[in-house]
C-alpha cells in the first residue's frame, strides 16, 4: 500500500453503480463449472452444417486442413514432429467449456460475435464429436457441456518456477 493510503477516504466516489443490464450484456464468459453458460442446446449434426458454411474456409473441411488453427485431432500419427504439432481441442484443451466461450466471443474470425447461442452449442458439439469426445447424437447444453471429460486435463500443472532460482 502507498504510504498515504492510510489517509485515503473509504471511497472516492468516482464512477457509478453498474446496472445489472450492462453487466449482463458483457458477462458472457463461461467457467469450467458451467457458470455463465446460457440456455439453449445443440448437437454435432446441426453443428456440421454451420461449420461447413462459416468455419471450413479457414479451418478446413474436416477441421484439420487449415489454413488457420487445426481444430480436430488426427488419430494414429507416428511421426513425432507431426504429433507435436497436433495439439488441439481433443488432445490438449483441459476444459470443454472453453470451446463454447471462445467460439462465442471470437469466431468466426471475420465476423466475431455474430453467432447465436444455439449455433455455438452446435458448433461446440460438432468439434467435440469430431475430436472423438462425444457421440454424434449427444445434446450439448449448460448441464452436459461441463461434464464432457477432456483427456488432457490432468496434464496441466501450476507454475513451479518461482520458489527457486533454478532453471525450470
Amino acid at each position: 500500500a502507498r504510504p498515504d493510503s492510510l489517509n485515503w477516504p473509504k471511497t472516492f466516489g468516482f464512477g457509478k453503480p453498474a446496472a445489472a443490464q450492462q453487466i449482463a450484456r458483457l458477462d458472457t464468459d463461461v467457467r469450467p463449472d458451467g457458470k455463465g453458460l446460457p440456455s439453449g442446446s445443440g448437437t454435432a449434426r446441426r453443428g456440421k452444417t454451420i461449420y461447413a458454411a462459416k468455419c471450413a474456409s479457414c479451418h478446413g473441411a474436416t477441421g484439420v486442413e487449415g489454413p488457420n488453427d487445426q481444430l480436430v485431432i488426427v488419430q494414429g500419427l507416428t511421426d513425432p514432429a507431426t504429433k507435436a504439432k497436433n495439439k488441439v481441442i481433443g488432445n490438449y484443451w483441459p476444459y470443454a467449456t472453453t470451446v463454447f466461450d471462445y467460439i462465442k466471443r471470437a469466431m468466426p474470425f471475420n465476423q466475431p460475435g455474430s453467432l447465436t447461442n444455439q449455433e455455438v452449442y452446435s458448433l461446440t458439439a460438432f468439434l467435440l464429436h469430431a475430436n472423438g469426445l462425444i457421440k454424434e447424437t449427444d445434446i450439448i447444453n449448460a448441464q452436459t457441456l461441463p461434464k464432457v471429460l477432456m483427456p488432457n486435463r490432468d496434464s496441466f500443472v501450476p507454475d513451479d518456477r518461482l520458489n527457486t532460482p533454478a532453471v525450470r
Binding site: D29, V30, R31, P32, D33, K87, I89, Y92, W93, P94, Y95, T97, T98, D101, Y102, A106, N152, S155, F156, V157, P158, D159, D160, R161, L162, R168
Partner: peptide
C-alpha cells in the same frame, strides 16, 4: 474465486515441460 481457463491460458500460453506435463498460469 477460480480461474476461467480461457482459450488463451489453455490452448495457448501454456508450455510442455516434460513427463507429459504442461505448465499453466506461468505468468512471470
Amino acid at each position: 474465486d477460480q480461474p476461467y481457463h480461457t482459450r488463451q491460458e489453455t490452448s495457448k500460453y501454456t508450455e510442455a515441460i516434460g513427463d507429459g506435463k504442461v505448465r499453466q498460469f506461468s505468468f512471470v
